[in-house]
Design a protein around this nucleic acid. Structure first.
Lengths: 214, 214, 214, 214
DNA sequence: TATGAATGAGATTTCATTCAT
DNA sequence: TATGAATGAAATCTCATTCAT
């Protein structure tokens, strides 16, 4: 069952994989229970290790949480930034790609729970809130704004205020994310087709943005 | 020593007012910090009483929270139910009145924080979630659905599924509520005019609901 | 058995006395075990209360320790400062009184253990060391130096450097303190008569300090 | 591959040197931080090995500390015992040599920190205290006492109680050691010239001890 | 009715020690 | 021999809840 080209002994592969396992377990637990209510002992149990092991890899609960965010969300933002930097086509295509990637990789996954968590508990953990705003909100919004600036600069988009326009784009997606992830499991929500929603949102917004072609 | 026009001695009025004061303090604290992070000591301090006094009126933290919800939200739902029961005019007027009351008394006030709190922490406190769904979500939705049924029965509304239609009505209001109450303080949102939003929402929905007048 | 003029109920007197009891227990434990090795649970047990009770009175271990130092050592320094401020006689008498008070109230008592503790563990707890140096070492030395300045100003003492002379006075007393409090119980020390030692020290030093009377 | 003039292969020389390296690192760490506050991980890091390696050479923290004491202090006492056993000259010369060796090799070096450490923490680690008293205090004092007995037996010294006289000799040296090793870094001490001190101490003591030469 | 001192279970974090490789 | 990942007991600190007054 082992890939033959894997030359490392089992425990060494384990060692390398350990941080990922811990981060995965932490993500599950944070999303399931929230930040404050997550007990590190439960994270450890979930990862099949002891409490102390967590501290071999992460200095404390806060750093563990930051690592989860970095590993998942910040990483994805970085990728999107790369994509944007080398992209050569129309800005509308780039913008659509970025928003869809955001939806597919974050909003539509378990990671949406992290966003919820920050909304819910950010107030009680100011350092976490600051980190999240700097690493996620600012960078994410900045990326979108930069695409808008690009489009405006290339004459593809009408000259709008990029910061405000970013909010106009981001807000509905946040809403949809909260909507589709039933925050209160027992509170049934009417079905929304996320892809249709995203498609419509992006379509309408882009057509409003684009300079009319004569 | 007592003001003569007061039928009750001062301390007795105090006694009667006490639970209200405690509930007000608890509401403030719950909204400000969330459920788990609210320390009963802070609630007591805020109300100007001792921790022990809280337990004279409320069996425990959970009951205190339930009382806050009952006193404020459930109470308002009850009033709306009363209003609906005696209302005699067109269903569209009734529906508009109910939604506007919801907005004005709950969504536009501090109480929106309770909704946020339940969305955010409900998972971690199943008994609270169950209570909230039974007393607030079910009754609130039920009220709206009943008005829809009334309108359909009276030939005012087109025959739609009341449960689904209720969701369609409720969802945007929840969205707006979350939107206007900045969940993440640092994350600036584009300005929305809540009254215009509500007006448009209700107007459009009602006109779609109403049977065409020949 | 109760003094009749004591009008407070027993537990109220208890409440007032509680911090003192905790400080006494903490002093015992700190002196017996050192700072790091003192477990707050043991302090609590010694005072006949629970762990949590300690935290009603002292924010944390460090503050508890500081309170012990303040209550005992800093307090005594303050008294000595008062004494010195109102004293009207010869500086040599004042100096002797201050040194003897130091010996009797601190060096010859359990409190000498605090000095030992700071010498031994100060390095590992920089904030504690800073506190101790500011509140105890600086003020204590400052008091002695001020008496020297007074004596020099009044023509009673020869013009020496007060700071250096303070060290010359303080050092042997510290030594004697360490000596008489066997730090390693099994390491027998030759008997020293502390009073004779102090008497000689002060006598010699003063006679060296004093301006020759023609 | 090995340097030919080396009879042992490099890794074997390494193996032999290893315990010494560990002991040196441990000494540094113990002196710097005290016994309790020394973390074996830091010792290992300092020696450039892994934590586990420490346990290949020393059963546990206590044994490591004992080994440090043996390697350094007990070893020096043994040498002095050898010297004394074969020494053939006047007892006063022998005594002076022993005291100066003690000063130069222990008191004036980093090893003085071990003495401080035992004074400070001995109480908390009874087994360590017992070991130290048996291996260091008893043997060291015994050595000095034996020289005194030798001198008395040879008619060089006046007939004093050797045990008491030993304390009289040892005490000031301990004092000086504590004095010169600033125990509280911020607490400045007046400068003392250790060599002058030792010289005077020994000179005065010996002249008091020696039988008057007619 | 009101107080607030007291409790103790439970959370995070540290570190000596073990052991599979 | 050497590693270093893993363990788990123990320490500090928090806070919902109780209860003597």
């Amino acid at each position: 069952m082992q890939a033959p080209q894997d030359t490392k002994p089992r425990w060494e592969r384990r060692k390398d994989a350990r941080p990922q396992e811990l981060l995965a377990a932490a993500l599950d637990q944070f999303v399931e229970r929230g930040y404050a209510a997550t007990r590190l002992e439960d994270v450890a149990k979930r990862a099949g290790v002891s409490k102390g092991t967590l501290y071999l890899y992460f200095a404390n609960k806060e750093e563990l949480f930051k690592a989860v965010v970095r590993e998942n969300i910040v990483h994805a933002i970085g990728e999107a930034e790369q994509d944007a930097a080398v992209f050569d086509g129309p800005s509308s295509v780039l913008l659509r790609a970025i928003l869809m990637k955001w939806w597919d990789q974050i909003c539509a996954t378990q990671l949406a729970g992290i966003t919820k968590l920050m909304l819910a508990e950010g107030n009680n953990f100011p350092e976490l809130a600051q980190f999240y705003n700097e690493e996620v909100v600012a960078r994410g919004n900045g990326l979108i704004a930069s695409v808008l600036v690009r489009g405006i600069g290339r004459g593809e988009f009408r000259p709008v205020d990029p910061a405000v326009m970013t909010q106009v784009l981001v807000a509905p997606v946040l809403m949809l994310m909260m909507w589709t992830h039933s925050f209160m499991p027992t509170c049934e929500m009417p079905p929304i087709d996320p892809h249709a929603f995203m498609d419509t949102l992006i379509g309408v917004t882009l057509s409003g943005l684009e300079v009319a072609q004569p």
